[in-house]
Nucleic acid binder design. Structure first.
Lengths: 341, 341
DNA sequence: CTGTTAGCGCATTCAT
DNA sequence: ATGAATGCGCTAACAG
């Protein structure tokens, strides 16, 4: 157990103990060039005895070097999706000898702004942000300092011009919807908050596009602005008891999918005579393929997305990126599970 | 887009632009005591124009204040479990105005040591670590500097004396196993790497204890040292084709549970005449309750665990903890799902 | 090889 | 109310 409140030893403490000047300690700690081996020995011993560790930020300040810190802000670390995302970022950051400062916004733009400020004050070299809320994020006024690049991930933010990694939402949603239509579904419900979440909006565009291509109408009453599993469960349960219920659902994220799956599962248990509703889900959900519910999954790899965002950031830091902002779309693959008509 | 390579403006830059001394800028930025309002105005304007942000680490250095950074090392950020865990830590850290530096060890003790070193060099105020590998982690030599407390989470580490948050593994495993036994199961298999993972070891102790209490033998051939979903799937599939197969499985974590569930599901599809094997799972898995597989879940809240670890750390930082290391066990709740004989 | 001087960005102390 | 000097922990540049 360590006592709290004791401040760390410094070069001077080590120097005093070893009977040398601070400079000799400094030299020894950074390779030992031009220090007699025996003196190095004494210094190292003193350092070890005191538990001395060079203060990185003081070094960086003096050497006019950047901090080696990357700020990452996500909307919900607890979502497995963003865990994978963070893992991808961390991986690439580690490869580039950087560490990540991570913050959770909880979709709160105010908290996002605060994180942004704090990160900037800590002189992060760059930021990777999943914009909170409706895309009207506080990043809007470009408050990142000069030379501090920002990469947006997953969602774009209104008025913010910077490198962005998105998902190929429109194309993916179109393909997933087409799959439902090819299975004969004509009455589809859409689960997602189109007005509040930009991602949901783009997925809706793809959904809508596929319907139009196939000459199928969309009943606006089947547009459900749900945002989480709970509300999705309720909404789907309700839709299923309509006079003219949808035969298939389009879910815009993995939380919503889980709720929808539960609702469909519950319903088909109590109504075994009714055909099982189909579901198209953006993002994969573990074990969902075993439920016997016809499932079309439009998935992408959040870890790869995080890694890509980090790569874009480091490219820019290295000056290897063109001056104008770049947008990359991660590919979406469509797979089908479960029995179908 | 910001040009890379431009260094951030400093107090001096702002001072020059505002036509005052650096001191006036400093005072203005930290509240503005003893600065004429009109001068403050000029300073703020200059600061805004330059995009000036006080360098936090320089401030902290000068004010002899700690960095406000907490280091967190987990074994696998991509595992939803640790995502939740990290969220709990972040939450409490934010409440205490700290930020977290997060690193992924990937169960590699060498990487753990490296993170440890880096964090120490960055003068973190404290560390929260999920020890990597077999508990023979590199933390052993107590290399955290003086005054830098360490909290171990989820697993203990051999030879490391520090605050620790564990799960009530033994009691939980005992209760879950008892539940299987009460359902009539007598031939149980254990899925977990007892020799390599301390957590698995403790869960095995509880498992074993319950068997003994009920006077049930354990067939050592049913001890499977699996570590992930893949290997669990294979092992369970194989066990099910034995002459004298187990009727129930005990899984030591959520990855293993997913693999085991798949194996059981596959098997009972191709062998509908055979009774469905039961499963007791440490940690919950989303949607697992809908599979029709008799399931006993021994679960705890990883987010609460992370929050508790962070609280212990901050208590110690505040000098509100007794000198000797404390160990807290998070409670485990047992629930049952699915049809049972 | 080793020590002294100086300065990174900031803020306390002591002048004015 | 403002500024000059000084020092936090560290190291480049320059002595010697």
């Amino acid at each position: 157990m360590s006592d709290s409140g004791v401040s760390s030893p410094t070069v001077r403490d080590v120097a005093a103990l070893a009977g040398v000047s601070p400079m000799t300690v400094s030299r020894t700690m950074s390779g030992g060039r031009n220090v007699r081996p025996e003196v190095q020995e004494r210094v190292r011993e003193a350092a070890a005895r005191l538990g001395y560790r060079p203060n990185e930020s003081a070094r960086n300040t003096r050497l006019r070097r950047p901090t080696g810190l990357i700020g990452v802000a996500v909307t919900n670390l607890g979502n497995p999706y963003y865990g994978q995302f963070a893992l991808g970022v961390e991986d690439v950051a580690a490869q580039n000898n950087r560490h990540i400062l991570i913050g959770n916004t909880g979709e709160d733009p105010e908290r996002e702004r605060q994180l942004f400020d704090d990160f900037a004050g800590r002189q992060v070299e760059g930021l990777i942000v999943v914009p909170a809320g409706n895309g009207q994020s506080a990043l809007g006024d470009g408050r990142v300092g000069p030379g501090v690049p920002l990469v947006l991930a997953t969602r774009a933010a209104a008025g913010v011009e910077s490198d962005t990694v998105l998902v190929d939402d429109v194309r993916g949603a179109r393909a997933g919807t087409a799959s439902l239509l090819e299975d004969g579904h004509r009455r589809l419900a859409f689960l997602g908050d189109v007005s509040a979440i930009p991602t949901a909006r783009r997925r809706f565009d793809g959904f809508r596009g596929a319907l139009q291509e196939h000459g199928v109408d969309f009943d606006e009453r089947l547009l459900c602005p749900v945002r989480d599993g709970e509300s999705a469960l309720g909404a789907v349960a309700e839709l299923l008891t309509m006079d003219d219920p949808p035969t298939a659902f389009f879910s815009t994220n993995n939380r919503i999918t889980v709720g929808a799956l539960r609702a469909v599962w519950n319903f088909s248990r109590s109504n075994p005579e009714r055909p099982v509703s189909a579901l198209a889900s953006f993002d994969d959900v573990e074990l969902a393929d075993l439920l016997g519910i016809p499932l079309t999954v439009m998935s992408h790899d959040p870890r790869a997305l995080g890694a890509e965002a980090a790569r874009m950031l480091f490219q820019r830091l290295a000056g290897e990126a063109p001056p104008e902002p770049r947008t990359v779309s991660m590919p979406v693959t469509v797979r089908q599970y479960g029995s179908r008509g």
